[in-house]
């Protein structure tokens, strides 16, 4: 067997998997901008203790509704102004970022884990079980998602934790459908058959053979539902069903300040802007991830 020599010697020069991923990802300029923005936001949230000039809940009664520094009446003590209770907006936004990212993370983890498990089961299960699971998911999907989350929170009682659970439940069917479709697509492939011929039992087939090959679309979905989760939590917070005051959560901040919208634009605009930038950057990044991970879109 001398015939393998040339081929082997040159194989390592091919760009690695990560390099290839990066190449596809970086082709999408929006995705790169999104990634940097998101990275900076995460860094800011992590360093909130160091950067924030004040505590998020400390009230400066003598400086309520102070405008940002560049407006008349602003001061460097409160760079982005204060809210109606005299709390520093910048500090609240920074600490709020923590909540938002935490919420996004937890919701995605819960929804993805549950969704992937159910999707795998549905993909491998006999037809009746598959039908039961999928119809259940259809029922969840047929409700307007925010309404369903509202109902769930109303039943469980308003708190940030319950809001996260409710949003996870609402987002889960997307994962189930996605995983099931990918599993059914992969299940008939030759490599799965050869694993079966090798004697692989169902759990091994599910988790070791098939699941890693279904992950690409799920990762994209995770990135996109991360922003969904942040939005939904903000919406629930705005409706008073999420994080409770004085938690510096962005949606709750919006809700608390909405009566002052005419007098003090910054109390409403700044949290709104924070939500917008975060969601936008994550969505841009998700687009890039799809370009890089979805083999169907891959160009040779």
């Amino acid at each position: 067997m001398t015939d393998m020599t040339e081929a082997a010697a040159t194989a390592p020069k091919r760009p690695g998997r990560l390099a290839e991923f990066w190449q596809y990802f970086s082709e999408n300029r929006g995705a790169v901008i999104g990634m940097w923005t998101f990275g900076i936001l995460v860094l800011l949230a992590l360093l909130a203790d160091v950067i924030a000039p004040h505590s998020a809940t400390e009230q400066f009664r003598e400086a309520t509704l102070q405008p940002p520094v560049w407006q008349e009446g602003g001061s460097w003590t409160f760079p982005l102004g204060t809210d109606p209770l005299g709390r520093d907006m910048l500090s609240r936004l920074l600490y709020g970022a923590r909540f938002s990212f935490f919420v996004g993370m937890v919701v995605v983890v819960i929804a993805a884990t549950g969704g992937i498990l159910l999707g795998l089961v549905a993909g491998f299960a006999p037809k009746w079980l598959d039908t039961v699971i999928m119809r259940l998911m259809d029922i969840i999907l047929s409700f307007p998602s925010l309404l369903l989350a509202l109902v769930l929170v109303a039943i469980l009682g308003p708190s940030l934790l319950n809001a996260m659970i409710a949003i996870s439940v609402v987002l889960q069917p997307h994962y189930v459908r996605l995983t099931r479709a990918a599993v059914i697509n992969e299940r008939t492939r030759d490599y799965v058959v050869s694993a079966r011929v090798a004697g692989a039992k169902l759990p091994r087939l599910m988790f070791i053979t098939v699941l890693p090959n279904c992950l690409a679309p799920i990762i994209v979905q995770a990135a996109l539902s991360f922003s969904n989760a942040i939005l939904d939590v903000a919406a629930l917070g705005f409706l008073g069903m999420g994080a409770q005051p004085p938690t510096p959560e962005w949606g709750t901040m919006l809700a608390e300040a909405r009566e002052f919208i005419l007098r003090a634009w910054w109390v409403v605009t700044l949290p709104g802007l924070a939500i917008l930038i975060t969601v936008l950057s994550i969505n841009l990044m998700g687009d890039g991830l799809r370009d890089a991970l979805d083999p169907k879109l891959k160009r040779s």
């Binding site: 492939r189 030759d190 490599y191 058959v193 050869s194 090798a198 004697g199 053979t209 090959n213």
Partner: peptide, 18 residues
């Protein structure tokens, strides 16, 4: 199972890429 094994036609689909 250990007595009989299979090799498929499509060398691209029959190996787990991950």
């Amino acid at each position: 199972r250990s007595q009989v094994q299979i090799v498929f036609q499509d060398p691209y689909g029959s190996l787990n890429l991950r």
